[in-house]
């Protein structure tokens, strides 16, 4: 009896199956809500075109030259803004009661969150591929090889996954999905723009340069530039991975704490 009293853990294999089902659920939503497609397809491409043709010439001499520098930054910026999807979706589930329904089912406790993160990573991979593809149509050339391109996807997804815990935390703390958006924008605009993602940093004031150097967005953009354009890779990639580890170490436990407090 005492042996049976302990709650049996859901087997990992079953938990992964639940995660797959819940990821499917998040992806199938796209079919019914074309706005989402707009959100993570049209919007990044629009940003890419605007930056390249409006600022590109002024910053780098010509749109073509700008792409070599700016595409990596635009990919990173899009990655970070897209992490808000995770928080918005999660908060919607919490406020609409879908999360309660899921928690009342005999499934792995972690699968609802894992399912959403997996689905969002798939969307992220799609957006990266799209930006890279459109970039190449506009004249961007990968100076390295397929292995580096694979590394680019890997690094972006690892970083994106770690950063999405920030939006998970916000989702646990605010009462409505729109607030995740607002909070996220206020956080992410300065973070992504006060970096070397879009423009070279030489003309920025000294205090800003000091921040830009350590800003994880700059670090990640440099790592992607190294991977796609050639140039230093080991340093920025290591730093980016350290940043990812730090974000995960801080925001995952905080999110779990906030989640426990909320439900």
């Amino acid at each position: 009896m005492t042996v049976l009293a302990a709650e049996p853990r859901v087997r990992i294999a079953d938990g992964l199956r639940h995660t797959g089902t819940l990821a499917w659920r998040t992806l199938v939503q796209i079919k019914h809500n074309p706005f989402e497609l707009l959100d993570f397809s049209v919007q990044p491409v629009m940003f890419l075109l605007l930056f390249t043709y409006v600022f590109g010439g002024a910053i780098a001499g010509s749109p073509g030259d700008y792409l070599a520098f700016g595409l990596s930054g635009i990919i990173v910026q899009n990655l970070l803004f897209a992490t808000l999807n995770t928080g918005v979706g999660l908060n919607t589930d919490l406020s609409k009661g879908v999360f309660d329904r899921l928690r009342s089912l005999p499934i792995a406790r972690w699968s609802p969150l894992a399912g959403r993160i997996v689905a969002d990573m798939i969307k992220q991979a799609w957006a990266v591929a799209l930006l890279l593809g459109v970039g190449m149509i506009l004249g961007f050339r990968v100076a390295t090889g397929p292995l580096e391109v694979l590394g680019t996807f890997g690094l972006l997804l690892v970083f994106g996954m770690a950063a999405s815990w920030m939006s998970v935390l916000v989702a646990m703390l605010v009462s409505a999905p729109e607030k995740v958006q607002i909070f996220g924008f206020v956080l992410l605009f300065p973070l992504t723009f006060a970096s070397n993602a879009f423009a070279p940093t030489d003309s920025m004031p000294g205090w800003l340069q000091a921040w830009v150097k350590v800003n994880p967005v700059s670090v990640l953009a440099d790592a992607i530039r190294g991977l796609l354009n050639g140039g230093p890779v080991a340093g920025p990639v290591t730093q980016a991975l350290l940043w990812a580890a730090a974000l995960l170490a801080v925001f995952a436990p905080l999110s779990v704490w906030a989640f426990r407090r909320r439900v």
């Binding site: 659920r25 199938v28 939503q29 609409k96 009661g97 309660d100 329904r101």
Partner: peptide, 16 residues
């Protein structure tokens, strides 16, 4: 469990 507020996924179809 049927909660106080219908907890269906509004973006999915009835069947889904």
């Amino acid at each position: 469990l049927t909660g106080q507020y219908a907890s269906v996924d509004e973006t999915l179809t009835g069947a889904e």
